[in-house]
């Protein structure tokens, strides 16, 4: 069953794109920053583009950090996308920002070398562990990335997939009812939509 999904509104850039993709899939959703609406929804999406520092500032000023913690503790399926997959860790090198600390680990900048920054474009996944949101996904599929920083979870068991760009970095992370993709599901064509659709049916059990 696909129940109502709340897309957390903290003035991030890709909210409406995520909503368009869900509407296209026929999944009911709303963009909201109201704690009661977020807490009463069946699933929650935490999107985001932009800088970690400013995002955390907005989240704190709207008092959404406590709401997000409550969502996660209650077992509600929770999906982070792009910046939303980074600021769920403890700390980000981007502006030396303290983040939400829902998953132990850090966010690092790509080492400046022969590889261009940002990592922009389509890239593949190497799946490290099975996860319900990857059901039926073609292993050769590629996804759209735009980022200069990447998540580095402290524990290997929180890494669901990695991607190669000069280094191997965690491109899907997850723990219990949290799952998060560094790439933009809403801009990754059919395969991205399939993952979103899987999330819209996910009960929050990773096993």
């Amino acid at each position: 069953m696909s129940g109502m999904i709340s897309i957390i509104d903290y003035q991030a850039g890709n909210l409406r794109s995520v909503r368009r993709a869900l509407l296209h899939l026929g999944v009911p959703c709303r963009i909201t920053n109201k704690p009661l609406e977020i807490l009463s929804s069946e699933r929650v999406i935490f999107p985001g583009v932009g800088a970690a520092g400013k995002a955390m500032e907005t989240i704190q000023s709207l008092e959404l950090d406590e709401v997000i913690r409550e969502v996660v503790t209650s077992g509600t399926p929770f999906l982070g996308i792009c910046l939303g997959a980074q600021i769920i860790l403890e700390k980000s090198e981007e502006g030396d920002t303290d983040c939400l600390n829902l998953i132990p680990g850090r966010v690092r900048r790509f080492p400046g070398s022969t590889f261009k920054i940002p990592h922009m474009g389509w890239n593949t996944l190497e799946i490290k562990q099975k996860h319900p949101i990857l059901d039926g996904i073609d292993e050769k599929a590629q996804y759209y990335f735009v980022h200069s920083y990447y998540a580095e979870p402290a524990r290997d068991e929180d890494v669901i997939a990695t991607t190669e760009y000069g280094i191997q970095f965690a491109s899907i992370i997850g723990r219990d009812n949290i799952v998060a993709t560094q790439f933009h599901l809403e801009k990754s064509g059919r395969q991205g939509l399939s993952i979103l659709e899987n999330f819209s049916k996910w009960d929050g059990w990773a096993g």
């Binding site: 794109s17 368009r20 809403e186 064509g189 059919r190």
Partner: peptide
């Protein structure tokens, strides 16, 4: 376009 295609 944005309602119909899901690539950048």
């Amino acid at each position: 376009v944005a309602q119909n295609i899901f690539i950048p």
